[in-house]
């Protein structure tokens, strides 16, 4: 369960969680597409739940695990509707340019 790193002992689960959080933070900011950002946000939240579990707060971890898919499903439905709306507005303005002015 513990790995010897020059002097101190470090467990595996906080190490993986901290790696996930740092990588997810950089990935959410640098990607520009919506679905890539939501996938990276999922990656970041997995790291957060692992870090909460490594503090032995199991009730908070269970609450986060229940609440996180709700937030992700709302974001996905919203991004899909936003994409569809923007696409239909672009098609409408390209077909009838006089009505937009």
């Amino acid at each position: 369960m513990k790995v010897e790193v020059d002097g101190g002992t470090v467990e595996i689960l906080p190490l993986v969680s901290i790696f996930c959080i740092v990588m997810g933070c950089i990935g959410v900011i640098l990607n520009t597409d919506y679905l890539d950002k939501i996938i990276m946000l999922e990656f970041l939240t997995g790291g957060l739940i692992g870090l909460i579990v490594s503090f032995y707060y199991l009730d908070v971890a269970i609450l986060t695990s229940i609440m996180e898919p709700v937030s992700t499903v709302i974001l996905l439905l919203g991004s899909l509707k936003y994409l569809y709306l923007k696409r239909s507005k672009k098609r409408y303005s390209s077909k009838l340019p006089i009505l937009v002015k």
Partner: peptide
Amino acid sequence: LVRFLNVEIPTIGVM
């Protein structure tokens, strides 16, 4: 929407 998805990161920092 991109700006709102970026706002999620300081939220996790506060957590």
